[in-house]
Design a protein around this nucleic acid. Sequence first.
DNA 1: CGGGCTTACGGTGTGCGTAAATATC
DNA 2: GATATTTACGCACACCGTAAGCCCG
Lengths: 92, 92
Amino acid sequence: MELRHLRYFIAVAEELNFSRAAERLHVSQPPLSRQIRSLEAELKVKLLDRNTQGVRLTRVGHAVLARSRKLVRDAESLRAEARRNREYRDPK
Amino acid sequence: MELRHLRYFIAVAEELNFSRAAERLHVSQPPLSRQIRSLEAELKVKLLDRNTQGVRLTRVGHAVLARSRKLVRDAESLRAEARRNREYRDPK
DNA sequence: CGGGCTTACGGTGTGCGTAAATATC
DNA sequence: GATATTTACGCACACCGTAAGCCCG
């Protein structure tokens, strides 16, 4: 599992539509679809219901979505803080 | 930035030695060294002091280490919870 | 010289894109 | 038949491992 999987999943969960999520991520649908499936496979959980006319989150999907958002936010925050401290290079 | 970068960094930070960290991760030193460098490049921060006789964390390195540990723990926790809820498949 | 990190250099796996297939309306 | 996701297929990039290079004791 990598952050990429979570970023992709969040996009689909928010758009509830693979096509729009793919646009937003600047990738095409097939890779997006595969990454979601691979995430579901690793977690051994179905995250989305691909029923007719649109996509819906499963119950577990909702829980994973919340945690994914937090993780990705925290990753952003890590990056931001690291860069913010750029000037504090060890004074040797 | 992916979780792999953080996992690698944590291993080096804990071992303070690329060789031992590589063993522990079941990869060889060169890939490990490159991933750390690429993380430093992305964050625009030096995380480690590779001075003679061993590796030391920079000040920023310590901060990033703490956040990395939390992130990786949270990722583990996400995976664990998802699997735990495996049985709660949507009752349709 | 010896231990340990980095650079060089190929090989391979994994993600990506285009195109075809499938499904539901 | 139109829209939307998935499968097929080939390619390219990025990670990996082996081997050579450096650096500091």
